[in-house]
Amino acid sequence: MDQLQLTDFDVDRQLLSLPGTSLLIFTSIGCASCRWARHHLPGLNLPIERIAWIDAEENGGAVQRYGVFHLPAMFVVRDGEFYGALRTQIAADAIIRGLEQALSGEPDELP
């Protein structure tokens, strides 16, 4: 699974141009759950092409646009279309169910 590190300056351009399903995850170095997610999520067998990480402390513009209120915060983007927030536990089964549910809905515009 590919991993990208995105910023305020390239998050929208990258997500709009990438094929397949991306899991966009906002994290922070000071967040224990975020550190756990960064360490474990790449090793899970998730039905996605990539994880796109964004440091919430360094990218306040993206945090504001995406309405991030807690960390880690996950969002789903497929083929340049935004499928919203993924509100689930950080566990493979829960994320897979959340992805299926999110992708079954109608896409929206990126924030």
Results as ranks from 00 to 15, higher is better:
1 M>W: 06
2 D>Y: 13
3 Q>H: 12
4 L>K: 14
4 L>P: 08
7 T>P: 10
8 D>C: 12
9 F>D: 14
10 D>M: 04
11 V>Q: 11
12 D>R: 08
12 D>L: 13
12 D>F: 10
13 R>E: 13
14 Q>V: 13
14 Q>E: 09
16 L>F: 08
17 S>I: 03
18 L>D: 04
19 P>Q: 07
21 T>K: 06
24 L>A: 07
25 I>V: 15
28 S>P: 06
29 I>H: 15
29 I>D: 15
30 G>M: 11
31 C>N: 11
33 S>N: 12
37 A>Q: 05
38 R>G: 14
40 H>K: 12
43 G>H: 05
44 L>S: 09
45 N>I: 06
46 L>A: 07
46 L>T: 07
47 P>L: 10
49 E>I: 08
50 R>N: 13
51 I>Y: 01
53 W>A: 03
54 I>D: 02
55 D>W: 09
57 E>A: 09
58 E>P: 03
59 N>P: 08
59 N>F: 06
60 G>K: 09
61 G>M: 13
63 V>R: 02
65 R>Q: 05
65 R>P: 02
70 H>V: 14
70 H>C: 10
71 L>P: 01
71 L>G: 01
73 A>D: 05
75 F>K: 05
77 V>I: 11
78 R>N: 09
78 R>H: 07
78 R>Y: 04
79 D>Q: 03
79 D>F: 00
80 G>E: 04
82 F>Y: 15
82 F>H: 11
84 G>I: 06
85 A>L: 02
86 L>W: 01
86 L>N: 00
87 R>N: 11
90 I>E: 06
91 A>L: 10
91 A>Q: 09
92 A>E: 14
92 A>P: 15
94 A>Y: 04
98 G>Y: 00
99 L>M: 14
99 L>I: 12
99 L>Y: 04
101 Q>A: 10
102 A>N: 08
103 L>H: 10
104 S>Q: 12
106 E>R: 11
107 P>F: 04
107 P>V: 09
108 D>H: 13
109 E>Y: 15
109 E>G: 13
110 L>M: 15
110 L>H: 11
111 P>H: 03
